[in-house]
C-alpha cells in the first residue's frame, strides 16, 4: 500500500458517498446515469470473484464488499426508491451498454486471455478479471453522455464525477510508485493501458470542472 493508492481508493469511496448524499438531499436523479453504475456493478462482480479464491488483506476484502454494496445501493435508490425513481429519465440515459460495452469487452477479453494463457492455461476467473479491466475503462461513458445532454452540471454531481476521475488518476501515480519502489513487482500492460484510457476520458470533464471552480460560476458544458 502506498499513499497514491490509498488516496485513490478514498477518492473512490468519497465519490460514491457524494453521489448517495446527492440523491438523498436533492431527492432526484437528474443528470445521473444509472447505466454507468450498472456497468460498475458488473465490473466489481466479475473482478472481485477472487474474494472466494485469494485473500490479500482485510482492507482489500472490506473495500471490495463496500464497492459492491454501495454501487448496488446507488442502483436500487435510483431505480426503485420513490420519489427519486420517478425523476429518473430513462430516455436521457440510453447508452446501449450491452452492444457497445459489455459484448465488445467480453470478446476482447476472450481473445487477449486466450492469446496470453493459451487453451491449457485458460481460467474462467482470469477471463472475467480481464473482462472487468476492459469494462471499467469505459464504464463512465454513459454518465458523461448524460452530462452532455443535460449540459448544466449540478454541484454535487460534478464533485462525484471529479472524485471518480481523481481516483483513476491517482492509480496511475500508484503504478509508477510501485514500479519504482516495490520488489517482486510485475507490470501488467492491459491494466496500465485501460487505466490510462479511463483517465483520459475524464480530461475534458476536468477542464470544464476546474474552469467553473475558478470562475465560481455555474458549471455548464459547451454544446
Amino acid at each position: 500500500m502506498n499513499i497514491f493508492r490509498l488516496a485513490g481508493d478514498m477518492s473512490h469511496v468519497f465519490s460514491i458517498l457524494v453521489l448517495l448524499l446527492r440523491l438523498r438531499v436533492a431527492k432526484n436523479a437528474q443528470g445521473i446515469s444509472v447505466r454507468t453504475h450498472e456497468l460498475f456493478l458488473i465490473v466489481f462482480l466479475t473482478r472481485y470473484l477472487d474474494l472466494f479464491t485469494t485473500f490479500y488483506s482485510l482492507y482489500n476484502s472490506i473495500m471490495k464488499i463496500l464497492y459492491i454494496v454501495s454501487t448496488a445501493s446507488i442502483i436500487y435508490t435510483i431505480k426503485f426508491q420513490e420519489p427519486i425513481k420517478s425523476t429518473y429519465d430513462k430516455s436521457q440515459d440510453s447508452f446501449l451498454y450491452w452492444q457497445f460495452a459489455v459484448a465488445p469487452c467480453a470478446v476482447l477479453a476472450s481473445v487477449t486471455h486466450l492469446i496470453g494463457s493459451g487453451i491449457s492455461g485458460f481460467s474462467f476467473i482470469e477471463l472475467l478479471w480481464t473482462f472487468s479491466i476492459y469494462l471499467e475503462s469505459i464504464a463512465i461513458l454513459p454518465q458523461l453522455i448524460v452530462l452532455q445532454r443535460y449540459r448544466e452540471v449540478e454541484n454535487l454531481t460534478g464533485n462525484y464525477i471529479f472524485f471518480m476521475g481523481a481516483y483513476r488518476f491517482l492509480y496511475i501515480l500508484n503504478w509508477i510508485y510501485r514500479a519504482n519502489f516495490e520488489a517482486h513487482y510485475q507490470h501488467h500492460w492491459v491494466v496500465y493501458i485501460c487505466g490510462v484510457l479511463q483517465t483520459l476520458l475524464y480530461v475534458d470533464f476536468f477542464y470544464y470542472y476546474f474552469k467553473s471552480k475558478k470562475s465560481g460560476g455555474r458549471f455548464t458544458l459547451p454544446t
Binding site: D9, N60, Y67, Y185, H187, H188, V191
Partner: peptide
C-alpha cells in the same frame, strides 16, 4: 512471491 499490477488492487 511476485505481485502483478492490478491483481492485488481494487
Amino acid at each position: 512471491a511476485k505481485v502483478t499490477a492490478g491483481k492485488d488492487e481494487l
